[in-house]
């Protein structure tokens, strides 16, 4: 997907503005039940209409944004917090730790992320904390894996060897020479992951394994709305749109960042490809 830079930034700004407003203000109390106003369509009073309990849909979507985006960021943060140090240790120390880690990776690779998270939440029971726990348990592995592979690559570099010869302590060596090389990759992976995590939260919530009513969450709202789909389709359309837009936005930003990050790599390989042109086999 290629968007102009200006458009890309305006979408992001709008989205962030929406989130910030949602944090401090909603038009109505998202939990206020008004049975007299139930299942209304869009109007000047309720912009996006009301749900089956007469709650203002816009307010609930805004409240839901807090929950959905908030949870996904929390999951991301915890995954990074566990994954990065683990990857560093596993790659740098090696030995039995690394062997154990490889076994863990293999175990996680046997099943898709979704199934794993589903099984875990199923085992732990529904609820916000369990949801966070289940998805984090699935997600941290990919960060650890990424960091580990970068560490293994960097350890072979002469400047890492020279730093070691100069008497640099291992932890300092990791922080100074290895960690900075992981940041670009982590940024790209994390941005792409936000969308995936949001989808995961939404789908687990949809089947009732996420936050419990009455707390609004986009997936859960979809689930609540499906009973009234024929009479009040807006109950599903608006939360659904929110999910789609958010996921598209993070994915597009992830791609954008990856391209930018790869451009950096490509500018190196462009030089190399110059020489590969020079040494091209042409016969």
């Amino acid at each position: 997907m290629s968007l102009s830079i200006g458009l890309r930034y305006s979408f992001l700004t709008l989205f962030l503005l929406f989130l910030i407003v949602a944090l401090v203000w909603t038009p109505y109390d998202p939990y206020q039940i008004q049975m007299g106003d139930r299942l209304q369509t869009s109007s000047a009073i309720h912009w996006l209409g009301t749900d089956h309990l007469g709650r203002d849909l816009l307010s609930r979507i805004m409240e839901g944004a807090r929950t959905t985006v908030g949870i996904s960021l929390a999951i991301l943060f915890v995954s990074l917090l566990i994954g990065v140090p683990f990857g560093l240790l596993s790659g740098y120390i090696g030995g039995w730790l690394d062997k154990a880690f490889k076994k863990i990776i293999d175990a996680f690779m046997t099943l898709p992320d979704y199934i794993f998270a589903l099984i875990l939440t199923g085992l732990l029971g529904p609820g916000l904390v369990n949801l966070i726990f289940a998805i984090t348990a699935v997600k941290w592995v990919s960060y650890a894996r990424l960091v580990r592979s970068i560490v293994l690559e960097q350890r072979q570099k002469d400047y890492v060897r020279l730093a070691e010869i100069s008497g640099m302590k291992p932890w300092k060596l990791v922080v100074k020479h290895i960690l900075p090389h992981t940041i670009g990759n982590l940024l790209v992976l994390a941005t792409l992951d936000i969308g995936k995590i949001i989808l995961m939260i939404a789908s687990l919530s949809y089947i009732g394994l996420g936050p419990q009513p009455p707390s609004p969450e986009w997936g859960a709202m979809l689930s609540e709305g499906k009973t009234y789909f024929q009479t009040a389709p807006h109950l599903m359309i608006f939360p659904g749109l929110c999910i789609v837009i958010t996921v598209l936005l993070t994915n597009s930003w992830g791609d954008f960042l990856r391209d930018r990050y790869d451009v950096h790599i490509q500018s190196h390989s462009a030089k190399r490809s110059m020489s590969s042109i020079l040494f091209r086999k042409g016969v």
Partner: peptide, 13 residues
């Protein structure tokens, strides 16, 4: 020197 050699065989990019 390499560019010269590639030009002879029409191998320049």
């Amino acid at each position: 020197k390499t560019l010269t050699s590639l030009a002879i065989g029409g191998l320049l990019s």
